[in-house]
Design a protein around this nucleic acid. Structure first.
Lengths: 221, 221, 221, 221
DNA sequence: CATGAATGAGGCTTCATTCAT
DNA sequence: AATGAATGAAGCCTCATTCAT
């Protein structure tokens, strides 16, 4: 996981107890932990966060539910790990695009590609954001996600407005409204998108970019 | 509620028990019932279906939770009423558009407008569909909603393909993929759309139609 | 229960839900509630607060543990009710003594008698204070008890010092230290005192007052 | 630890397992063990026996909770060690006083001083006895403590009655009742007594002895 | 039509303890 | 002598639902 600071990152639980000098031990521990996170992520994606019980997760791992608390101090901290890892990766990728620069059309296209590329390895996290955010947002510990999203909005809207300023994009559309439509369309695709299907992540991204920039109509605008 | 048949309509449970011979009484009862449904809908929209307890609903109505069961025989039947009423209205409107006919571009634009128009009075239902469908879909009683959606998909995809056939729409896009993107983008807007804001339902619909047909770019395609 | 205000009184749980116009209902409800409190009090006294489970209480009442939460919103709120009721009664009695006035020896003797008199009907509360206060004090909700005790200390110390000022009490003893010894000796007696035994509350109080004022020695001081 | 026989001493469990043939090793082990007992004692005194988890103790020692079981075979055996060491020391001191002999007033005064002197180094044990005995007494393994207390009661009551017989002490007081009051008052002082405060152990003992023998009043009895 | 009480299933979490490494 | 993982029992609490009054 690439923790980018900026207040992101899960509220990790008192790992202080597990000392820190040994080598193999902590690597293995972390492997076990990541395995459990992956199992939980799949269940959260499939059944939803609330409907997934810690027993479901433990069953999947072949242990008792209480044993999960050797690795995590709450169900929340598991989903936190899932979500923060997703946001960290996406933010890092977006930052890289911005640093590479380019005209707004290129930047926007790359941002779209970032999303679809991140969607594949973080399918569960995106699923949770789509289905369970309305529940999770009530917990203070997830405030950092709302703040991360606000920052992302500023980034996209900035590019759209820059494009309108240089005449690349139509002037009669609302930048913020447009951003939200783009964002939602992309992420909500997680509900049906199958990388193994006819179109892979790049394919869907290209399809989406095509429609986004030029619409579905033929002929002159 | 306009029950359009076709398997739609909530699975109302043993309404025979309380629907005795009274006339005026049942009108009042029905008003009370609709009031309770509205209260529940708002809570479902705000906190999510699972996170809303029957006690929350009862509190809002100023009664005890057990008393709700004089009006509904389960929490599921409440949300069923909310969702079926939304789908009934939308299906009816879509059918009307199809009957009016017209070229695919016109029809598609009208279908988009239907959605945004329905979104306003059925905000809660759309919210529930966006946030809680992943949970609700597991119950057999809601199968009818999945079937309704399949029918709607056929309807839209049919129009898009007709448009591609007549050269109105680009040939290099995937009709089903495009439909899903359109659908998701529209409904997910319920998360931020505020009819009292800068743009009303028609305004947002127009904005969306503009981008959909012609993209956000300027200049030749 | 005589709620004397002054920040005392348990954090009573949202009784707002149970409306308030009916007569017999709320009286009965309150009777049931008090019955449960009494059962819990006896268990807390016998086994300790922590070692008493909500199941123990429910079993004693012949209901399921979850059903307790129809009457209380937590185990803490039950013990709160027990303790606040005890403190309220004691504070009220002490206030009455102060208002009657008299020389410090008389007042002190009456305060002692107050304690032993209150001990009998509130045996469980005193037991909990002796055995479980070290645990309960960690919860903010019980801060009011610590504050009540501070006020009582001021009251007693005031009387002892007044007695020293008028030459009634020895000058070579520490008022605060003496108060604490008196207080502790009295309340800790709950561990062995049995009202049905050889001495009743008044008898033990008199015995204690005799030793307190004149010591156990014979002959000149 | 001075194990005085008479059923005292902790129920040490299978120490044969870890007490192999090493000499220097067992001294070090014993030091480590005593260190852990001291850490545990402080936590028990502060938070109570039940509320202190073995993990709390292990954290304090900088090890994992499972590792404690190389030194003790249960949480009970730790508190047993704390309490038996306290009782052993007190009993030995009391025996020495009895052996020195003297008139009941002198003996009683010395017994009181014994208590306050023992209280300081065994603060935690006394705290546990005050706060957690009601819980611990349910375990057979602590029966020996109840028996030790009975023996002590006989010892004190014997001295009081001897004093009443020789006319040193008032005849109108109950020996057993008086003993319990003295005992409770002394030990419960652990809740507020601070050796570093205005009065040290001897000072508090003298204060207490003065009030005990002559009361707080001035003038003739 | 509502109340008040209860059910029963289940949820998350804690914790003393065990044991292979 | 310690770790890291797990157990198993239990704890407090929640919630949809039922039902006599």
């Amino acid at each position: 996981m690439v923790s980018t600071g900026k207040g992101s990152g899960p509220h990790r639980d008192g790992s202080g107890a597990s000392g820190g000098g040994r080598r193999r031990g902590s690597v293995l521990a972390s492997e076990r932990r990541e395995h459990l996170v992956r199992l939980a992520a799949e269940l959260f994606a499939e059944k939803g966060y609330q409907a997934t019980t810690v027993r479901n997760i433990a069953d999947e791992a072949g242990i008792l539910s209480g044993s999960l608390y050797h690795h995590f101090d709450s169900k929340e901290s598991i989903v936190d790990e899932i979500l923060s890892s997703f946001f960290d990766e996406l933010n890092a990728a977006n930052k890289a695009v911005l640093e590479r620069g380019g005209d707004p059309r290129t930047v926007l296209a790359e941002l779209v590609r970032n999303c679809f590329r991140t969607l594949v390895p973080h399918r569960a996290a995106v699923m949770v954001m789509q289905n369970d955010w309305n529940y999770l947002r009530r917990f203070d510990r997830f405030d950092y996600l709302a703040r991360a999203e606000e920052e992302t909005e500023r980034l996209w809207v900035g590019q759209i407005e820059r494009g309108q300023g240089t005449g690349l994009f139509r002037d009669d559309i609302d930048a913020r409204l447009t951003y939200r439509m783009i964002r939602d369309t992309i992420w909500v695709a997680v509900r049906w998108f199958q990388p193994a299907g006819r179109l892979d992540a790049e394919g869907v991204a290209d399809h989406y970019i095509a429609v986004l920039f030029d619409g579905i109509s033929t002929g002159p605008r």
